[in-house]
Design a protein around this nucleic acid. Structure first.
Lengths: 111, 111
DNA sequence: ACCAACGTGACTACATTGTAGACCACCCGA
DNA sequence: TCGGGTGGTCTACAATGTAGTCACGTTGGT
């Protein structure tokens, strides 16, 4: 399984999925959230590729579902973060936090 | 200048440099800090390559200096994070924070 | 003075992750 | 039934992450 920790974009995808409803998130919703919150554009190709890789690593899973609030009838994939994914996310963040300790002043900035 | 934001390991390097004394940090000190704090091993090759890339992006700079507390007489490089680097670090962290908002419960875990 | 061991650093090559763009299928409204 | 939007795959490539090896000057022992 290659590596045991996440790239930054992968982390963002996991976070964005978690931010949607408890029962999972639809792909393009997730993509839109990343674009809005992180303020960067995400091409569909880049995005789906990352989802695939996360799936292969067992960090996300999905089931087919039909979005309620849309006129769409055909089911599409609804993603969810697995326990493995959550754990990876946690440890990635812990590492960063450990290194950031004591730097709050410097990192806040007046931006 | 390729991209305007940082990979995760690059972030770690910047953070670790900031954590050393105000007047800069020596390479292998930084490496050791990452290994200890983030709990992952870092090969020298990987490490210096990353320093190079950060330098090329104008995010770190260095000067020659002789470590005080060592018997070494020859100067080695002492690194410092540039304003550009600090800014990049801040914005990378802000993006992550924006996406993490409201997830503290989930992310803390009982690990 | 000589040699081994070590610290520092460059260079090479490769794996993983990040990214864009073309392409396909389906559904829907004009 | 044409065209456009949405959901998705595939391909190819760029950037980042990583290990390993080579080289050289220092240090320390003898």
């Amino acid at each position: 399984m290659t590596r045991d920790f996440l790239g930054e974009f992968e982390q963002m995808v996991l976070l964005a999925i978690l931010r949607e409803a408890k029962d999972g998130a639809f792909a393009l919703e997730v993509r839109r959230r990343i674009e809005v919150e992180a303020g960067r554009s995400v091409s569909r190709g880049a995005f789906y590729t990352t989802l695939d890789r996360l799936e292969r690593k067992g960090m996300v899973e999905w089931e087919e579902a039909v979005p309620e609030d849309s006129r769409r009838t055909a089911p599409i994939r609804r993603f969810r973060v697995t326990p493995v994914g959550l754990e990876a996310l946690r440890s990635a963040r812990q590492a960063m936090e450990a290194l950031s300790r004591g730097l709050d002043q410097i990192l806040e900035g007046t931006t």
